[in-house]
Computed example of a mutant assay.
Amino acid sequence: MDVIRTKAALRARVAQWQAAGEAVALTPTMGAVHEGHLSLVRLGLERADRCVATIFVNPRQFGPNEDFTTYPRDEEGDLAKFRSAGCDAVYIPDPGQMYGTDYKTEVTVTDISDVMEGASRPGFFTGVATVVSKLLIQSLPDIAIFGEKDFQQLAVIRTMARDLDLPTEILGAPTVREADGLALSSRNAYLTPREREIAPSLHRAMIAAAESVRTGAAPHVAAEQAKRDVLAAGFQQVAYIDIRSQDTFAPAEALSENLRIFAAATLGSCRLIDNIAV
C-alpha cells in the first residue's frame, strides 16, 4: 500500500493506474477509521480495480467552537486498517498541500446546504464542498464513495460534482451500524460508557417516527414526538429531527415517496447525526 503525501504524487499514481486501463475509486475520510470507512473501501474495490483512501482533518469544515483540535487522530492505526481492507494507496496531505498560504477560493452549494446541518453549522458545507472538490481534482478518480450516514453531505457533493462538471461518479454507501442500531462514527469515541448505553435511543426514536408516518401520522407530529423521546432518553439537546424529501430536502407534509427522517442531537460532548428512509 502506497502512502502518498503530495498532490503531485497522488495525481501521478492514479494516472499510472488509469493509463494501464484500471479504474480508480476514491474514499475520502478524516481518519479515526472504523468499519464504516472500511466498508467504503470494500465497495470501491468491488466497483473499481484500485482504491485510494484519504486522511485529512479539514479545518475549513469546523466551526470556531467545534472539535478540530480534539478530533481523534491515529495515523498509524488508520494505515493498518486501510492496509487490512486491501486499499492500494492512502493520501495524507498536510494543510499546506491542501490550502496554500494565499488560498482564497471556496465552493458553495446553495439551497440544499441551507437546512439542517447547514443551518446548525454555518460554513460546514462550504468547507466540505471545497475540500472534496480539491480531492477530486487532485486525484481525478473514476468514482468516489461517501457514506449515507451523512446523507445531506452526500447530496451536496453530488450536486457540486455535477455542477462543476467533475468527471467522477459519486456513489453512496449504506450506513454501517452497531448491533444496537447506533450509526458508526469517529465521534462515538467521545461517549462515556453510560452515554453509549443511551446513544441508540436516537435511532429507535427515528424508527418509531418513520413507522408512525407510514401508519398515517403527519410527519411534523411524528418528528416532534421523536424529539420528546430523544430528550426523555437522556440527550441534552436536539438540533433537529426533520422528515423531508430526500430528493429536494423540502419538509414533508404527508406520506409520499422518497421521504427520509434526519436527526442531530447532543449527548454529553458528542453530537450524533443519523438518517433513515421512511
Rank of each mutant, 00 (worst) to 15 (best):
A32G: 15
V128M: 07
A223R: 09
L136A: 00
S212G: 13
G21I: 10
A179I: 13
P28Q: 01
R50V: 07
G172F: 14
A277C: 08
R162W: 07
L136S: 00
T266A: 10
I55K: 06
S201M: 03
D114Q: 13
A155S: 10
A15S: 15
F56N: 05
E178R: 02
R50F: 11
A144I: 12
Q16V: 07
Q246W: 06
P167D: 03
R83G: 12
P95G: 05
L136H: 00
G268C: 06
N65H: 15
G234Q: 14
V115Y: 09
E117L: 05
Q97A: 14
V57D: 11
N258Q: 15
D150L: 00
S212N: 09
R83I: 04
R177W: 10
A277I: 13
T70F: 05
T126H: 00
R73L: 12
A199M: 01
R121T: 10
P122M: 04
P72C: 08
T101D: 10
R162A: 15
L45R: 14
A53E: 11
I55V: 15
H34P: 07
A20I: 04
T54S: 15
I207K: 11
A9Q: 14
E46W: 00
V41M: 12
D142R: 09
A232S: 05
I241Q: 13
D165A: 13
E257T: 15
S133P: 01
Q236H: 14
G123Y: 03
S245N: 05
T69P: 09
D165V: 12
R73A: 11
L38I: 06
A15I: 02
D165L: 15
T29S: 00
Q18S: 11
R204C: 02
Q246V: 10
I261N: 13
A129I: 03
L231S: 06
I92Y: 10
F146L: 03
C51V: 15
R196N: 05
S245Q: 08
L135Q: 03
F249C: 09
L166M: 14
T54V: 14
Y99R: 07
P219R: 05
A8K: 10
A252F: 04
I241P: 11
G181I: 09
Q237P: 02
G147N: 02
G234T: 12
G127V: 10
V213H: 05
D242K: 10
I273F: 09
R177Q: 02
G96N: 12
S39E: 07
A155L: 11
D142P: 07
Q152C: 09
A9I: 01
A226Y: 13
E35K: 11
P72R: 01
R162L: 12
G181H: 03
N275Y: 06
F125Q: 07
V41I: 15
G31R: 04
Q97H: 09
V41A: 07
V41C: 05
P174C: 03
A252H: 12
A85Q: 02
L43G: 04
I170L: 03
P28G: 05
E178S: 01
E117A: 08
Q61R: 08
V14R: 06
A12Q: 15
I261G: 13
R11M: 12
R271I: 02
V131R: 09
R162D: 13
F62W: 06
A19N: 15
V24I: 01
A277L: 14
K134S: 04
